[in-house]
Write a protein that binds this DNA or RNA. Structure first.
Length: 552
RNA sequence: GCCUCUGUAGCUUAAUGGAUAGAGUACGUGGCUUCGAACCAUGUGAUGGGGGUUCGAUUCCCUCCAGAGGCACCA
């Protein structure tokens, strides 16, 4: 990768690696820069540095501006990078020396409820991270973890059994799952408002854990609806898993592990089994209830044991909404005490929760935007825009690419997100459709030119380049560094920013320069640039979990 | 009450301690007889307040203000 070659060349010239290579904020300054204050530790005078670096073939210009040593990479280097891209594509050149086995948990929809916009975010983020990590050379094991036992299921089944006759009329999977969501909402309300209902629901909860005959058949049937529904849903949004874990299989194991570590890790308190986090600067949490049922905490202990037994990992990444941040600090500590070999191997990523404009989203009260509904809305909106713009030009309607295009940015979400429908499904500006459009536009020109990728000769010089050509030329080689950073920092949005900038550079070239009618040398260069750019856009979008279409 | 996180243009947001704080959207203006106008150009507009560390702070520390989340049997 270009950055590494530059880093190496400078290190050799200086005889030191004690410097940080910066990307100048403004590309007009050059391609790389070093701040002169860093040179003090090298005991090197900046003029001497400029002179030394000027001798390197990899640069065509090195100058001192406002406290920075700015370096411009030689045009021939960029041409070589472009030729390499046309030959080899966009995969990393060398294996990652820090490659790990990473268990990545994301999605985590509970059964007996509907997926909402928050799940969509988790799926989008997780899918993107899985692809980025794999691209970066890691081996990724995709885990889903679904809550199919617990109080929420008991609340749902309590109402469900009262309305069993209504359920018989449900035909489609969608209807059945929507019905379960309603039961859950009403069950939650009953649990809070009515003490008899609360007692009954607690009993159902225990019966589910114990697999009592009174409830087991109903539990199994309704659970199977949800599981099938989520499978279909995941297929639809293009996510796959290596393993679906269920709370019904982690609860016994978790309970056992907690009981085995009473006194050494956990303490009994008021009939419950708790972990006293205060000694580690954390807080106390309940792992086994006074009813003897495991809480989410104990189940997560069971889950990590299963994960490590089935597929030994270097790092287990768990993504959740940020409301679980404090929870995970405690559980992580407990895990590390039970399994000392997992010290430092558990990583929790909490992202901001998604609120509806004006109110908190809650599946308990039904104040949610169902993920399915959202996808439909986006599809319709895109179809509508498409018809409006393109039908007068005799274009056919094509709406099937409407899905998976919203939420493409904001893939790093530390603070809460206000969900504004209009804003989120925008089809212009920094959005999925913009990138999709740009890609199709590039492919269209390349097809018209009947372009076949082939190595460029040095028939153009940096003088005959327009600034639009040059912008794309120098942007292309940074892709692998950006993708790598996105993987390392678990921040897919870095790639979003990059691919948007690249698309914008392509559209600008399109607007300012002619391509097909340009003189031969420029035409060849521009076609090569657009070919490489289109591949990079395609790869980037794939890494973000978005499939591109050649034509729209 | 205690702990954690977050405050950047009207709105949604970016910025490994580095240069003139970068985008999108909205609003104003201009550009299709021409390679795809879901495009491009251009204008207006921002680091919550106050201290500190540093050659240099959106970034680190303190404090105040504002918002969110968590803090024993939910997930």
């Amino acid at each position: 990768m270009l950055k590494e070659r530059v880093q190496q060349a400078i290190a050799e010239a200086l005889g030191s690696t004690e410097f940080t290579l910066l990307y100048p904020r403004d590309k007009a300054f050059g391609d790389f820069a070093i701040n002169i204050h860093q040179l003090k530790k090298l005991a090197l005078n900046e003029q001497a540095l400029v002179e030394k670096l000027s001798l390197l073939d990899i640069f065509e210009k090195v100058e001192l501006v406002q406290g920075f040593v700015n370096m411009r990479v030689a045009y021939t280097e960029y041409l070589a990078e472009l030729n390499a891209a046309l030959r080899g594509g966009t995969q990393p050149a060398a294996p990652n020396p820090h490659a790990q086995r990473i268990n990545l948990e994301f999605g985590q929809p509970n059964t007996h409820k509907l997926p909402h916009i928050g799940h969509l975010f988790s799926y989008a983020y997780g899918e993107s991270m899985a692809r980025l990590l794999a691209w970066d050379g890691h081996t990724v094991f995709r885990s889903n973890y679904q809550g199919d036992v617990g109080l929420h299921v008991a609340k749902c089944l309590y109402i469900f059994m009262q309305r069993k006759d209504d359920a018989k009329n449900l035909s489609t999977l969608e209807d059945k799952v929507r019905f379960l969501q309603t039961c859950y909402q009403d069950g939650s309300a009953a649990y809070d408002e009515n003490s008899n209902a609360k007692t009954a629901i607690d009993a159902i909860n225990k019966a589910i854990y114990n697999r009592d005959d009174t409830i087991h058949a109903v539990w199994e049937e309704t659970r199977s609806w949800s599981v099938a529904y989520y499978k279909k849903f995941e297929e639809r949004i293009g996510t796959t898993y290596d393993r679906y874990f269920f709370e019904s299989e982690t609860s016994d194991l978790g309970t056992k592990l907690v009981q085995e570590h009473i006194d050494s890790v956990f303490t009994e308190s008021d009939g419950a089994v708790v972990f006293k986090g205060e000694q580690f600067g954390l807080h106390t949490r309940v792992f086994l209830t006074t009813h003897g049922t495991p809480t989410y905490e104990a189940k997560d202990i069971g889950l990590i044991a299963l994960k490590k037994q089935e597929w030994p990992f270097d790092t287990a990444v768990i993504t959740t909404a940020s409301e679980q941040n404090a929870y995970w600090q405690v559980v992580k500590k407990a895990i590390e005490l039970i399994f000392p070999e997992l010290q430092g191997k558990i990583m929790h990523i909490g992202f901001g929760m998604i609120d509806l404009k004006g109110s908190k989203m809650s599946s308990r009260t039904g104040n949610i935007v169902s993920a399915i509904d959202l996808i439909e809305i986006v599809k319709k909106k895109c179809a509508r825009e498409l018809v409006k713009k393109w039908q007068p030009r005799g274009c056919r309607n094509n709406s099937h690419w409407g899905r998976k295009i919203c939420l493409f940015k904001n893939l790093k979400q530390k603070k809460n997100m206000i969900f504004d429908l209009e804003q989120s499904i925008s089809v212009q500006g920094n959005s999925g459709p913009y990138l999709q459009y740009t890609y199709a536009r590039l492919r269209s020109v390349l097809a018209k030119a009947q372009y076949e990728p082939s190595a460029l000769q040095n028939s153009t010089t940096s003088e005959t380049l327009s600034s639009e050509d040059y912008a794309i030329l120098r942007m292309l080689p940074t892709f692998s560094d950006v993708a790598h950073q996105a993987a390392v920092a678990y921040s897919p949005h870095l790639l979003c920013t990059y691919v948007y900038d690249l698309a914008q550079a392509c559209n600008l070239l399109y607007d300012k320069q002619s391509i097909l009618k340009a003189p031969q040398a420029q035409r060849e260069l521009r076609l090569a640039l657009l070919e490489a750019a289109s591949r990079t856009i395609k790869t980037s979008l794939n890494l973000l979990g978005i499939d591109v279409l050649e034509r729209i």
